[in-house]
């Protein structure tokens, strides 16, 4: 399980410093094609910084990142990555359709292809009937789903989601995870950060991060077995405790 054949995402010794502070401390990990890979860690552990580096927005101070065989950061690779940040990052004055049109156009989508994608992603996130509504009239959960729809517009091969279900009710969280699982089955590689333990259970593999260090890597079942604990939470605490 730990070795990689197709090597969709390959992080080699990534280090990130802000000023003098080391936020990412030499992290190496690989993610396979079609995998749902979870990054689990408390807030401030460096999850967001790491996924921004993998998404090609931020650059590692040291180390190398390869995505689908190409070294990052590279502007052309942005077409193959979908990124959804913690904030919804939508234009509230515009309708959902206009938001999707805009971001779609940035990825070079136009005409009937743009329309078809718009319909498809909105159906996927369960907002099919709300295309024409202004985003400011959306509820918090709807905005979150629209934000996911935006990230899916250009059919990215790698989808990077930073805490996609934060502040979302359990019912909606379940439906978002069903969507992610469906995407994973269709071949999309998904990297998702979370600090919710029961979400971590749903990932194919997990990386546990604490204070910028990767403290454990494996399937949820492996991690639980290795620490002899019954839950991911116990496993996380055990690994974390071992570091101190």
């Amino acid at each position: 399980m730990m070795t990689v054949s197709s090597g969709c995402v390959d992080v080699r010794g990534a280090v990130k410093r802000f000023g003098g502070k080391e936020v990412i401390r030499s992290i190496s990990l690989q993610v396979e094609r079609g995998e749902i890979f979870g990054l689990l860690g408390p807030s401030g552990s460096g999850k967001t910084t790491l996924v921004k580096i993998i998404a090609g927005i931020d650059e590692a101070t040291n180390g190398e990142i390869y995505l689908l065989g190409e070294k990052l950061p590279k502007l052309a690779m942005m077409n193959r990555i979908g990124y959804m940040a913690q904030s919804d990052a939508l234009y509230a004055e515009l309708s959902a359709k206009e938001n999707l049109e805009f971001f779609g156009a940035l990825f070079g989508l136009k005409g009937s292809k743009l329309k078809a994608r718009m319909q498809y992603v909105m159906e996927l996130v369960g907002l099919g009937g709300h295309l024409g509504r202004t985003v400011s009239a959306y509820s918090g959960g709807m905005k979150r789903r629209l934000s996911l729809a935006v990230a899916l517009m250009h059919e990215p091969e790698v989808l990077i989601l930073d805490e996609p279900t934060v502040g979302i009710d359990p019912l909606l969280r379940q439906s978002i995870w069903r969507e992610l699982e469906a995407l994973g089955r269709s071949g999309t590689t998904i990297i998702v950060t979370t600090h919710v333990m029961d979400e971590a259970e749903k990932c194919n593999r997990l990386g546990m991060i604490r204070e910028g260090r990767l403290i454990a890597l494996g399937t949820p079942a492996d991690l639980k077995n290795q620490t002899g604990g019954g839950t991911i939470e116990e496993a996380f605490l055990r690994y974390g405790g071992g570091q101190e």
Binding site: I57, L75, M78, A85, A89, F103, L106, F107
Partner: peptide
């Protein structure tokens, strides 16, 4: 501040 700049920078926009 709304985070849309970050999203713009996650696209091939120069």
């Amino acid at each position: 501040t709304s985070g849309t700049l970050e999203r713009l920078l996650a696209t091939p926009l120069r």
